[in-house]
Amino acid sequence: MPLSLSAGRSLLGMLVGLGLFALAVDQASARTLDTAYGEVEVRDQPERVVTLYEGALDTALAVGVTPLAAVSTRGSDGVASYLQDQAGDIAVVGTAREINIESVVAQRPDVILAAPRLPEEQYQLLSRIAPTLVPASEPYQPDTWKEEARFFAQALGREAQVEDTIAKVEQRAAELSEQHPQASASLVRWMPQGALVMSEAIFSNTLLSASGFVVSDGDVVKQGRPHSDPLSLENLSRIDSDWLFLATLNNEGDEALASAKSSPAFARLDVVERGQVVPVDGQLWTSASGPLAAEAILDDIEKAQR
C-alpha cells in the first residue's frame, strides 16, 4: 500500500474531508455512533458512501443505498458476483487487505464504512478523509452479522429497513429448519493436499445453524480463526457429515467437485457416496456477510434440499 507515497495526497484528502465534515456539521442534523474507536459523528443521510468491507457494501445495498466505491471480494478484482447486479459499475478501491487510500480520497466520501478490527494506523489515515465507522462487533458470534448490519444501517439512517431485512432472513431460516431436523453439515474448501475446514462460527455456518443444521468443524479449527490448516487426508472422516458444502473460489463448482472426487480419500466419504456434497460459491460462503448474502446463502441451502 502506497502509504508513504500518499502523504501529500492525504493532506489534500484531509482538507477535503475537513471541508465536507464542516458542511455536515453545518446542517445540524448529525448523528453519533459508538464505534470501535469511540464516538464518531456523521451527517444524517450521507450521500457519498464508501464501503471498505464486504458486509458494509451488502448492508448498504440491502437498505437501498448504493455506495460509490467498495473493496473487491476474495479471489476476484470486482465485488462478489451475488452483488454485481445491484452494485452496478461501482468503483473498486483495493482489496480487504490493501486499501488504496488515494482512490478513497478521490471519491470525496461523506462517510467511510470500514471492516471490524480495522488497524488503528489505517483508521487514523481514513478518518482524516471522512468520518470512518468501524463496528465494535465481537467476531465469530452467531449474531455478529446482524449487529454489523444494524450498525451500518444506523450510519446510513435506515434502521427500519435493516430490521425488515433481518426479520425476513430470520423467518426464512426458521422455515427451512423445519424441513430437515438436525442434519449435520460441514463447510470446506478443497485443496489437493486436503481440505480447509471452515470455522463453525463464520457467517455462512451461522446461517446453516439457523436453518436447522448441526454444523461441525471436526474440532480442527482453532478458536478465533476463520478456518483450519489443510486437514490431513487421513483425517477426512472428520468432515463426513450428512451434508458437505464445498466452497470454491471460481464459478466452476462442478469442476472443483470432480477434482475433489479424484482423490480416493474424498471419494470414499459416506457423504460423497450419498451425493450430498453441494458445491457453493466461495466468495459468497467464505468471504461475504450481510443481509443480501444471507438471502443468497439461504437460496443455496434451499436449492440443495430439493
Binding site: S76, P192, L233, L249
Partner: peptide
Amino acid sequence: DQRTADEIRFWIVGSLAGRH
C-alpha cells in the same frame, strides 16, 4: 489470477500428500 490461487499455492511449497 486469484481464481487458481489454491492450485498455484501448491507450487510455492512442495508436498507429497494427495498426489496420484
